[in-house]
Design a binder for these strands. Structure first.
Length: 274
DNA sequence: AATACGGACAACCGCATCCCG
DNA sequence: ACGGGATGCGGTTGTCCGTAT
């Protein structure tokens, strides 16, 4: 027997969300919280698949999302984490507060991949592309690009070999995705915390998301936790309900800001429900 | 001015994993 | 321990918009 479809595909709307739909979804989650996504569309009066509602919320409507391009620092973290984790975007996103896996994935595919390729680095393996042409060797420590690649500062050897940088995609058959996916290697990548200072720092200090404040906004409202002033749930989301047009500039400031870390804070534990 | 093209990003699809009875 | 439903995740596609011709 086959798997049941997540929803009746004939009766659900697809394609871009309208402002009205966004409002309905926001209103519903404001009053009921995140629970049972399958039931959300029905209860919220939406002709959408529950999955679609979840994606819309997590990728676009969540009040803690940062908008706009990733900063250079964020890009650097993405590159470092990708070198270690492969295409495990959700793991990477978990360490970038206010960023979603989808956003990071898109940014990787449209920006970072190109940058790395241009620099002569295979984005899939994080190795220099100017390897001896005939021999395909297993990755060695010496071939690995230092994780703290500065995108604007090409290594000297990379510059000289840039003309060879055109076949990176084709050479990426042994991608970190394959290496990291599944049980066979996923844990090993986690355990394999080598001497990369940045990565060690990230792993040691942020095994949980950088800051993982609770969904329990009403209780936390007005309090200062770790130098973060918690706004009420209503305060956090009021701006959303006022929006007819969710322009990028409207999202510029996160609803929480960590004074010490100088970044917006992920208020949501995505796995948590209330 | 019209059309083609390409980049960026939102959204969908299907499989994997988790969780609970 | 097992089965089935719910959710999460990553890959892929679709759509919009800016730029080039």
């Amino acid at each position: 027997m086959g798997r049941q479809p997540c929803c009746d595909k004939l009766s659900v709307k697809k394609g871009p969300w309208t402002g009205e739909e966004d409002k309905k979804l926001i209103n519903f989650i404001l009053s009921n919280g995140q629970c049972c996504w399958r039931a959300v569309p029905k209860l919220a009066g939406l002709l959408r698949c529950g999955k679609s509602c979840r994606l819309r919320w997590t990728n676009y409507l969540r009040p803690d999302l940062k908008r706009g391009l990733l900063t250079e620092a964020e890009e650097q973290v993405v590159i470092d984490l990708h070198a270690r984790l492969g295409n495990r975007w959700s793991k990477i996103a978990a360490r970038l507060p206010g960023r979603t896996d989808n956003e990071i994935k898109n940014h990787w595919n449209t920006h970072i991949k190109k940058k790395l390729t241009k620099m002569g680095i295979d984005p899939a393996t994080h190795e220099l592309i100017n390897k001896p042409s005939t021999i395909t060797t297993t990755t060695t420590k010496s071939q690995q690009i230092p994780s703290a690649i500065q995108l604007d500062h090409q290594p000297e050897q990379v510059k000289t070999e840039e003309s060879h940088a055109t076949t990176s995609e084709e050479n990426s058959s042994s991608s970190p995705t394959k290496n990291c996916s599944g049980a066979e290697s996923g844990s090993s990548s986690d355990n394999n915390r080598d001497d990369d200072p940045l990565m060690n720092f990230l792993w040691e200090n942020f095994d949980t998301p950088f800051l993982d404040a609770s969904w329990d906004f009403p209780a936390a409202a007005g309090k200062t936790i770790n130098n973060v002033t918690m706004l009420s749930w209503e305060e956090n989301c009021a701006w959303l309900l006022d929006r007819q047009d969710f322009g990028v500039e409207e999202f510029g400031s996160g609803c929480l800001y960590d004074v010490d870390m100088g970044m917006n804070i992920n208020m949501l534990d995505r796995g948590e429900k209330f």
